[in-house]
């Protein structure tokens, strides 16, 4: 199929989705759908603060999506992004709490970075080692690791919280030790730049490096990989170390660059949303910029309209659901051509 036809199908899908959304909105709320749509857009683009919040949301989701993509290319279904982010964030927060006033700030940020990357990599590496050695099911394994990570974070939150509510407040509020520097007056700019660099890195890693080629071959056929002397076990573990490490970076950006705090909900389901972002982009890091934008835009826009029009909170989920249904559904028409074949029995009559 020529690229323009595929593009046309996708554009048509989005247009149809908006139409259905409009009808649903009118039927159930009586609001003018155009107002709702414009509210959605202004919810994301209305003010420069909103635009930066949108960019920040895209950056974090994109970071996690980039992280799971090498594993997916290898057909290793890493759904443990959530836990790997949490472990990265936890390690980062620990550094901020225990070394905040001990070492110079640049040393602290370096320590945070290294520990977050290592913690994420370990969390991703454990299921990989089990997969490589004993062929365990990576989907279940990485999923289980999420729960362990959540409980670990809850445990440390209780230790670190001095008031006994189990909630860690802003860490180092007065010294701002370990907080990412604010570039050009924008506190999210550094996050955006880091993730932009990661896009380039992952793109090159997957498409031009020897490692990237090896993991693709392993994903397609382990037998072929062994036949040309690729060490399958090594590639599985190496790729998941990278995948976990990049999730750890997402944790670092959340704790050190955004929230300056830690909680069990800090990953916010991004470990799972990233699966969709990565698949929709067919594992292409550059296309993921677009797919993560669509997802974040929908989430922000629809939550904005529920508050502005005083709608039920589920209504935004309904709209998001409708739009995603059409976007994902359009892939069917891109991958398959539909022929209408006559049924012989009908014709015989």
């Amino acid at each position: 199929m020529p690229w323009w036809k595929a593009l046309l199908i996708r554009v048509a899908a989005i247009a149809l989705a908006l139409l259905v959304c409009a009808v649903v909105t009118m039927l159930f709320t009586g609001e003018n759908p155009l107002n709702v749509f414009s509210a959605m857009i202004s919810g994301s683009f209305g003010t420069s603060r909103k635009i930066w919040a949108l960019l920040q949301g895209i950056a974090i989701l994109l970071c996690v999506s980039l992280a799971v993509t090498p594993a997916f290319r290898m057909r290793f279904w890493n759904v443990g992004g959530e836990g790997q982010i949490l472990m990265g964030g936890l390690a980062c927060a620990a550094c901020m709490i225990y070394f905040g006033e001990v070492v110079p700030n640049w040393v602290l940020i370096l320590m945070m970075t290294v520990s977050a990357v290592v913690a994420g990599a370990i969390w991703g590496g454990i299921p990989a080692i089990f997969k490589a050695k004993w062929n365990t099911n990576e989907t279940l394994f990485t999923l289980m690791m999420n729960y362990i990570a959540t409980q670990l974070v809850a445990f440390f939150c209780n230790i670190w919280d001095k008031k006994g509510s189990g909630i860690v407040g802003i860490i180092n509020p007065s010294t701002e030790a370990g907080w990412f520097p604010v570039l050009g007056g924008q506190r999210y700019l550094l996050n955006v730049i880091i993730v932009a660099l990661l896009v380039v890195f992952v793109y090159i890693y997957l498409n031009y490096s020897k490692h990237g080629y090896e993991l693709t071959v392993v994903g397609e056929s382990e037998k072929t990989a062994r036949y040309v002397g690729i060490k399958v076990e090594k590639v599985i573990v190496r790729t998941m170390l990278l995948s976990g490490a990049l999730c750890g970076v997402a944790g670092l950006l959340l704790v050190g660059g955004t929230d300056h705090s830690i909680s069990t909900t800090i990953a916010g389901g991004r470990g799972f949303t990233a699966v969709m972002v990565s698949w929709l982009a067919k594992f292409n890091p550059v296309v993921m910029i677009l797919t993560s934008f669509i997802i974040v835009f929908l989430e922000r826009g629809s939550s904005d309209i529920t508050s502005r029009f005083g709608l039920n909170k589920s209504f935004s989920d309904i709209l998001t659901g409708i739009i995603l249904f059409f976007i994902i559904g359009s892939e069917f028409f891109i991958n398959y051509r539909i022929d209408f074949v006559h049924n012989s029995e009908k014709e015989a009559k």
Binding site: Y208, V217, S221, K223, T224
Partner: peptide
């Protein structure tokens, strides 16, 4: 299943034997 990768194109399949010959980390 062993000699080639069905989903890869001809060039990428030729690479199976030679990808290690690239410079540094690049194939």
């Amino acid at each position: 299943g062993m000699g080639l990768v069905g989903n890869m194109d001809l060039s990428d399949n030729m690479m199976l034997r030679s990808f290690r010959r690239g410079k540094g980390v690049f194939a």
